[in-house]
Design a protein around this nucleic acid. Structure first.
Length: 951
RNA sequence: AGGAGUAUGGCGAAGCCUGGUUAAACGCGGCAGACUUAAGAUCUGUUGCAUUAGUUGCUGCAUGGGUUCAAAUCCCAUUGCUCCUACCA
C-alpha cells in the first residue's frame, strides 16, 4: 500500500526532476553556492545524516525563492580505509560485522555477499544515499555528482597536491602510529578488538651510564631527573644489551618488540638483571652515582622495562623503596645495606600545600600499604596531575629554578635529546591494544611519510587572515577555529592503505582522505563538463588555467570548452557557505581554509562556515556500530518526508544537538496535518473555490481583528525570514509555523462564525503567504496545496514572503494584548472570588496617567524623581500626591508593559465588547470616568490596564 | 592532561551578546473542561509555592562570591556534561 504522503512526494519529485528547476547554470542573477561535507557512504543513511543534509536544502530553497541562482551539489567521499576493513571482515564472515550490516544497515542477504569488495560497498551505499536524498526532496543539481575515486577527480587531487608541493607546503617526516605487526598495517580504532580510543604517549628516555652501556629508562616526567635517587630493575625480567646507533642500551627483552618499530635496534646479547642489582650507575645529567635496586612493579613491556626512581615525587618509587627497606631477605640477597642507608628522597618540584616530598605525604594520606595496593594508582595520578598543573621547579634546580613544570617539561626533554643525553620513544597510554586479527599492536614510526606543513608560520598567518574574514555560524566556535589554526601540527597526509589517489611523485603512498577533500567544492562547479572529457587530457595545465587563469601550451582540452569551464568556475566561486559537523572543526574545516588560502587568490576563498551539532535518539547518542539509529528511509516511510524534514529543522538549531523523540515527531506530524486541514477550511470558507490568483489584496481592511491578523502575519514573516537568513531553522519555524498557528487559532476563535468577505480575504492572504513561508521546509506539501489552490508555477520558484510595513501595526497588536489581558485578569479574579458575576465594570485610565506614561517614556529610565518632577512641572494633574503615588507605582510597570504610546482604549474595548463578554460570560460596562464605582476600584486603572469591578 | 563549548521549570528548549517588557516564549508530558457511546484526534483553560477583589507576595535559571538602584542575563572561582587531540571520515 502506498500512503498518501508517498503519492504526493513521488508526484512532486517527478515534476521537479522533469522541469530541471534545480539544475543551476550561470546567468544574470546573483549566485549563491553552498556545500555540505560529502558523505563517506560506508553504511545506511540515518536521521542524523538527514539533518545534516536538510539544512543546506532548506537554505538553498529559501535563497532560490528570494531570487538567487543557487547551486547545491552533492558527491561521495569514497576514499579512505574503513571499507577495506569492512570488506575484510565480511570476507571472513565476522559475526559482529555481519550482524550490523544485516540488522542496522538493513542490507539484503544477496547484496551482503558482494560486500567482500570494498568498492562495491561504497557504490552500494552511495546509490542508496542518492535515493534517500531524493526521497527527502533535496534540491540538488545531480549533474555534478561524482565519487572521489573517479579518474577525473583523481587528476584534480593530483593537481592540488602538486600545487602545495610547489609552494613547499609538503615535506617528508616520520610519524608514530598504532601498528599491527602480523597484518603489517597501521590500524585505526575500528580495526581494534581491544583498546579503542587509547592514545599514543611520548616518553623521554633517560640514559644512565654503566660500563660501556647505558641503562635506558623511560619517563613521562623528564624534569624529575634532578630528583633521581636510584634505578629500578625487575629481577624477574629478561634484559638485553642492544645496539642503538653507536650506543649500547640495556633494556628489557619485551620492550624490544615495540622499540624496534621505532628505532634501529639490534640485540647483542641477553643480560641477567640479578648481578647488576646493587651496582652503581651514573646519571649523565647530574653526573651523580645511583644504585640499581630491585622492584617488582616494573613492567617489562611498558617503555623500556627500566625506570629511574624519584621517591620524593613518585608514589610508586617511594613505596617501593619503603618496601625494600623492610625486606631483609632482599637486602641480604643483594647486600644493599650500605646503599640503602644513604638513600633519601630528593626534592625537585615545589607544590603549594605540600612539603618537600609530596609522594610521601600522599601515600600516608591515602593509606597506601605497599606497591601492590590499588590506591597507589590513585596517588600517582593525583600527584602527576597536580605537579604538572601547579608545580614549579624548586630553587636548587639548575637553570630551571622557579619555572612552571607545565612549561619546562618539554624544554628539558628537547634539550637533553639534542645533547644526546636522552632519547625518545612512543608507547600506548594503556595496554593492551589488540588488533582484530588477535595480535598485540605496537607503536610504529613510519618514516618516509609525507606531511602537510600546517605549522608553517607564513601559511598559518595567511590562513588566520582568511578566517578573520569568514562568517562563522555559530559565532561561539570561532575561538575554536582560531585555536586550531595556531595549534595544528604537521599533518601526515600519506597513507599505506585505503582507496584513493596516489601521491604523484611518490607512488607507494596514497593521499590521505582528509587531504583529498579540501578544495573539492571548486570541482563541483566544473564536474558536469569533466565527466565527458578523457581524464588523460586533464593535466596540471588544464586545472591551472581553469582555476588560476595561468596560460600554458600544454592544455589538451579544446580552447572554447576550457573557456566555458573557466567561466562557470568564476561564476560560482567563491563558495558562500560551507556546512559541516562540529567534530570536523579541528581537521577538515580548518584544512579546507588552509588549502584555499594556499592555492586560491583572496577573492576565491571561503566566505562562510556553518557548524553542526550531533544527533541523539531518545536522549542517547546515535551510533550505527551500537545499533542505536533510525534509518532515514524508515523514518520517511513511517512519517513522510515533510514531517521528517520539519521535525529535524524545528527541534533544534543546526549547531545544537537534536534529539529524535518519537512522541515529538508525531506531534510535528499532527501540526502539519492541522495545516493541511486549515488550508481546506479556508478554501471552503467563502463557499467557492479558492484561487490564489484571484485574491484581492488591495481591499482596505477595516475591522480591527483583521488588521491584527495581518499585522501578526507580517511580524512572523519578518522574524522567520531573518532567522533563516542566518541558518536558524528552528527559530524560523518557531515563528513561521508554531507562533503563526497560535495567532491563527486566536484569530479563528475571535471571529467565531462571523465570516464576511473581508475575513475570507484575510484568510486567503494568510494561507497564501504561509505556504510560501513553509515551502523551504515542507516542499512537497506546499507544492501540492499551491497547485490545488491555483498558485502560479512551482512554489519552489515562487517569491519568498516579504515583510509588508504597511500591514504591520504595533498599536493594533498592543490593543489586542490589552483585550486579552483584561480577559485573563477577569478570569484570575473570578477564580479567587469563586462566584459568578453578572456585570463587570471596566474603568479606563484618566488622561493625566497617560501623560505621566508619556513623560516616563521620554525620560527612558525608571527614575521616579525625574518622572515625578516633570509631571508636576507640566501640571498634568491637579492632585500632586496622586501623581507621586502613581509615579512610584509605574517605575516597574513601565518596563514591564512595553509602552508604545497613547491608545484609544474606549474604541478598542467597544470593538471587542461582545468578544470579552462572551469569554467571561457576563455583561461588560465600560466607564471613561468613575461615575459608578461603589468599591472605589477606578483608581487602580493605568494605561493598558483598565480597572475591573465585578458584581 | 590540553583545547573549545555548555549548564534554565517533570522533560526538550527560548531568553543571556545589547541587565529592568521574565515565574521565564514554544513544544512534550500532567491536570480540568468541551466534543464523542467510549477511546483517539481536535478545541478551551490550567501546570513553582502561597493567596476567596484583584493584576500580589515568596522562592527560583548548576554551586559559591562579586558588580549594580536592579542580574537567568555582566565579572571571578568551583563543579558537572559534550566535542576534539592524528591511519574514522
Amino acid at each position: 500500500m502506498i500512503s498518501l504522503h508517498k503519492t504526493i512526494e513521488n508526484k512532486w519529485r517527478k515534476k521537479w526532476d522533469e522541469s530541471k528547476i534545480f539544475e543551476s547554470n550561470p546567468d544574470d542573477r546573483e549566485k549563491l553556492f553552498l556545500t555540505v561535507a560529502y558523505p563517506y557512504p560506508s553504511g545506511a543513511m540515518h536521521i542524523g545524516h538527514g539533518r545534516t543534509y536538510t539544512v543546506p536544502d532548506v537554505y538553498a530553497r529559501f535563497k532560490r525563492m528570494q531570487g538567487k541562482n543557487v547551486l547545491f551539489p552533492m558527491a561521495w567521499h569514497v576514499t579512505g580505509a574503513p571499507v577495506i576493513g569492512i570488506a575484510k571482515r565480511i570476507q571472513r564472515q565476522d559475526p559482529w560485522t555481519l550482524n550490523i550490516y544485516q540488522n542496522v544497515h538493513k542490507v539484503p542477504e544477496d547484496e551482503l555477499n558482494k560486500f567482500e569488495e570494498p568498492e562495491y560497498i561504497v557504490k552500494y551505499f552511495s546509490t542508496e544515499y542518492h535515493n534517500v536524498m531524493d526521497s527527502l526532496g533535496f534540491s540538488i543539481d545531480w549533474r555534478r555528482e561524482f565519487r572521489t575515486t573517479d579518474p577525473t577527480y583523481q587528476k584534480f587531487v593530483e593537481w592540488q597536491i602538486k600545487q602545495l608541493k610547489n609552494k613547499d607546503y609538503v615535506k617528508k617526516g616520520s610519524h608514530p602510529v598504532k601498528y599491527c605487526v602480523s597484518c603489517e598495517n597501521p590500524v585505526g580504532d575500528h580495526d581494534l578488538l581491544e583498546g579503542e580510543g587509547i592514545g599514543i604517549n611520548e616518553l623521554t628516555l633517560m640514559k644512565f651510564k654503566i660500563d660501556d652501556m647505558y641503562l635506558v629508562t623511560a619517563t613521562f616526567r623528564p624534569e624529575t631527573i634532578y630528583g633521581a635517587t636510584n634505578v629500578w630493575l625487575n629481577p624477574d625480567v629478561e634484559y638485553v644489551k642492544a645496539k642503538v646507533e653507536d650506543e649500547y642500551w640495556l633494556i628489557s627483552k619485551k620492550s624490544y618488540n615495540n622499540l624496534s618499530n621505532q628505532k634501529k635496534v639490534e640485540i647483542i646479547e641477553d643480560i641477567e638483571a640479578k648481578p647488576l642489582i646493587g651496582r652503581m650507575v651514573q646519571n649523565i645529567v647530574t653526573q651523580e652515582e645511583h644504585p640499581i635496586l630491585p622492584a617488582s612493579f616494573v613492567d617489562a613491556e611498558y617503555g623500556t622495562g627500566v625506570v629511574f626512581s624519584v621517591p620524593g615525587h613518585a608514589p610508586a618509587d617511594n613505596i617501593a623503596l619503603q618496601d625494600l627497606k623492610k625486606d631483609e631477605k632482599l637486602i641480604k640477597e643483594y647486600s644493599l645495606e650500605e646503599v640503602l642507608k644513604d638513600l633519601k628522597s630528593r626534592n625537585v618540584v615545589s607544590l603549594e600545600g605540600y612539603g618537600d616530598f609530596p609522594a610521601e605525604e600522599l601515600i600516608e594520606k591515602l593509606g597506601v600499604k605497599n606497591q601492590n595496593d590499588e590506591k597507589l594508582q590513585e596517588a600517582t595520578n593525583e600527584l602527576y596531575k597536580q605537579e604538572h598543573a601547579k608545580g614549579v621547579m624548586s630553587e636548587h634546580i639548575p637553570i630551571y629554578a622557579g619555572q612552571r613544570v607545565s612549561e619546562v617539561r618539554d624544554v628539558i626533554s628537547e634539550k637533553l635529546r639534542n645533547e644526546k643525553k636522552a632519547s625518545q620513544m612512543y608507547d600506548f597510554a594503556e595496554r593492551p591494544i589488540i588488533c582484530r586479527c588477535g595480535n598485540k599492536c605496537v607503536v610504529k614510526i613510519l618514516d618516509d611519510q609525507w606531511f602537510m606543513r600546517y605549522s608553517d608560520e607564513k601559511w598559518t598567518k595567511e590562513t588566520q587572515n582568511t578566517f578573520d574574514k569568514i562568517e562563522i555560524i555559530p559565532s561561539e566556535v570561532r575561538s575554536n577555529f582560531n585555536y586550531y589554526v595556531g595549534w595544528l601540527h604537521d599533518w601526515a597526509c600519506s597513507r599505506r592503505i585505503g582507496l584513493g589517489t596516489r601521491i604523484p611523485w611518490d607512488n607507494k603512498w596514497l593521499i590521505e582522505p582528509l587531504t583529498d577533500s579540501t578544495i573539492y567544492m571548486s570541482y563541483y562547479t566544473i564536474a558536469k563538463y569533466l565527466r565527458n572529457i578523457d581524464p588523460e587530457s586533464l593535466n596540471d595545465a588544464f586545472f591551472s588555467k581553469v582555476f588560476l587563469n595561468q596560460d600554458s601550451d600544454d592544455i589538451k582540452v579544446d580552447e572554447s570548452l576550457v573557456s566555458q569551464i573557466q567561466t562557470e568556475f568564476n561564476y560560482w566561486y567563491p563558495l558562500d557557505w560551507r556546512l559541516s559537523a562540529k567534530d570536523l572543526i579541528g581537521n577538515h574545516l580548518t584544512f579546507h581554509v588552509f588549502h584555499h588560502t594556499a592555492i586560491f587568490p583572496e577573492d576565491k576563498r571561503p566566505q562562510g562556515i556553518v557548524v553542526f551539532g550531533m544527533g541523539l535518539l531518545e536522549g542517547n547518542k546515535m551510533s550505527s556500530s551500537k545499533g542505536n539509529v533510525i534509518l532515514l528511509e524508515d523514518a520517511i516511510n513511517t512519517h513522510g518526508a515533510d514531517v521528517v524534514r520539519l521535525f529535524l529543522m524545528s527541534s533544534a538549531e543546526p549547531w545544537q544537538d537534536f534529539d529524535w523523540r518519537e512522541k515529538e515527531v508525531k506531534g510535528t506530524k499532527r501540526r502539519l496535518e492541522w495545516f493541511v486541514d486549515f488550508a481546506n477550511k479556508v478554501s471552503k470558507i467563502n463557499n467557492r473555490n479558492l484561487s490564489f490568483k484571484n485574491i484581492k489584496k488591495d481591499i482596505e481592511v477595516k475591522s480591527f481583528i483583521n488588521k491584527w491578523m495581518l499585522s501578526q502575519l507580517n511580524q512572523r514573516v519578518k522574524e522567520s525570514g531573518e532567522a533563516l537568513e542566518v541558518f536558524q531553522t528552528r527559530k524560523a519555524l518557531q515563528n513561521g509555523l508554531f507562533l503563526l498557528k497560535k495567532d491563527v487559532d486566536h484569530y479563528l476563535h475571535r471571529i467565531g462564525d462571523d465570516i464576511d468577505d473581508e475575513v475570507a480575504m484575510v484568510l486567503g492572504i494568510v494561507l497564501e503567504t504561509w505556504l510560501r513561508l513553509l515551502a523551504p521546509f515542507t516542499p512537497h506539501t506546499c507544492e501540492e496545496l499551491w497547485e490545488k489552490y491555483g498558485g502560479e508555477g512551482f512554489i519552489s520558484m515562487a517569491t519568498y514572503p516579504e515583510f509588508d510595513d504597511s500591514l504591520f501595526d504595533e498599536k493594533v497588536q498592543k490593543s489586542e494584548e490589552i483585550v486579552q489581558g483584561i480577559i485573563d485578569d477577569i478570569h484570575e479574579i473570578k477564580k479567587i472570588v469563586s462566584n459568578e458575576p453578572e456585570k463587570i465594570h471596566l474603568y479606563l485610565a484618566p488622561e493625566w496617567k497617560w501623560s505621566v506614561f508619556d513623560i516616563a517614556r521620554e525620560i527612558g529610565k525608571p527614575d521616579i524623581g525625574q518622572i515625578m518632577g516633570k509631571s508636576i512641572k507640566e501640571n498634568v494633574h491637579s492632585d500632586k500626591k496622586e501623581i507621586a503615588d502613581f509615579a512610584k507605582k509605574i517605575s516597574r510597570e513601565m518596563t514591564r508593559i512595553n509602552y508604545v504610546g497613547h491608545l484609544n482604549e474606549k474604541e478598542i474595548l467597544d470593538d471587542a465588547i461582545d468578544y470579552i463578554s462572551g469569554e467571561v460570560s457576563a455583561e461588560i460596562i465600560i466607564h471613561e470616568d468613575a461615575d459608578y464605582d461603589p468599591e472605589n476600584k477606578a483608581r487602580n486603572a493605568i494605561p493598558y490596564k483598565p480597572a475591573i469591578y465585578m458584581e
